[in-house]
Amino acid sequence: MDDLFPPSNLLSRCIDIAPQARVKVESAPEIGGERILLEGGELLFSEHFFSDKVCKRMIEYLQESRNFQWKVVDWAQVPADQLKEVEFENVNWKQDYIKFFGKTHPLPRLTAWYGDKGASYAYSGIRSDPNPWNDGLLYLKARLEAALDVTFNSVLLNWYRDGSDSLNWHADDEPELGTCPTIASVSFGETRQFLFKPKNASKTQLSFDLLPGSLVVMKGETQQNWVHSVPKRKGVKGSRFNLTFRNIRVV
């Protein structure tokens, strides 16, 4: 095992690897970034896969509204009942709820699900039927498919309105995704940390600072052996939009 996972020099300043993590880092020219070989998984990472111009337009595109002052509003202060009245131009954002210890709680982020007809998805007791693709999502999808030589039929959008919105430790291992899915995660807006650890570990082993336009691709057996999270960060005041492109098994 020592020969398989020798020490490596990091190419990106946005990756932090814990001393106990056994990984190998290689160049990934297809995305202008790094390939990170894990014990039981594989990641690709690019700091700036999408240009600043694309990032700026996508941040606007994802929150444009016909009846709301979307350029100046503090979205974290908009209650769920008022959110339902917002006429978003491009994305049908929604507030989902989960049951925890017999009580219903709002999911600590807004979500939307888009994809091919029949590409429905269920996680944490929440079932989502796909909205039809729009031009902005198809543009991102085409860029990712060309670089990764993978076909995606769906995308989950997460809107972290500020540092109070988060994502708990989990793996994307739902049956609809298959055993070794390729999931491409792109980010726009505020920089947030993206953490990884083995399923049987107690401490984080990898941390990514996801800048606007960054890309993380989870491949191979990653979902079987690793979990990931986006922790709360009090100092983050603005929005981060995360889009994870997937291939759902359509029955």
Rank of each mutant, 00 (worst) to 15 (best):
P231A: 11
V72P: 00
A76I: 04
G163W: 14
V23R: 07
H228S: 05
F5A: 03
W159F: 15
W169E: 02
T179I: 14
R66M: 01
E85S: 09
G238K: 15
A142V: 12
C55M: 10
W169S: 07
N67Y: 14
P212L: 11
W113H: 12
L206Q: 08
F100P: 04
N168H: 12
P6V: 07
T204C: 08
E64P: 06
P106E: 10
S120E: 14
L37E: 02
V216T: 10
F45H: 10
A80H: 13
L37V: 09
A18H: 15
Y121A: 02
K117Y: 12
W159V: 06
S128T: 03
W169Q: 00
V186S: 05
A201K: 13
L11V: 05
Y121I: 03
V186H: 13
K237E: 03
W159M: 11
V150I: 15
F68C: 06
W159C: 05
D2K: 08
K71C: 05
F208K: 00
W93C: 04
Y121Q: 05
T111H: 09
F245E: 02
E39I: 01
I126S: 01
Q20T: 08
E145A: 06
S166V: 06
F68Y: 15
F188G: 02
Q205M: 13
L243Q: 03
P181I: 12
P108M: 14
Y97E: 08
V150C: 08
G102Q: 05
D129S: 06
P212Q: 08
V72G: 05
E221T: 15
V86G: 03
N247K: 15
D2Q: 10
F68L: 07
Y114F: 15
Y114K: 09
A80T: 05
G163F: 14
H228I: 05
N242P: 06
K94Y: 12
P29F: 09
W169K: 09
R22A: 04
A28D: 06
L144K: 14
N242C: 06
P108E: 09
L62C: 04
H170S: 00
E42S: 00
G40Q: 13
V236T: 11
I15N: 01
G40D: 04
I248K: 11
I248R: 13
E176P: 03
L195S: 02
K84Q: 10
L195Y: 15
K237M: 10
G189E: 09
G238N: 14
G220F: 09
P106D: 07
A18P: 01
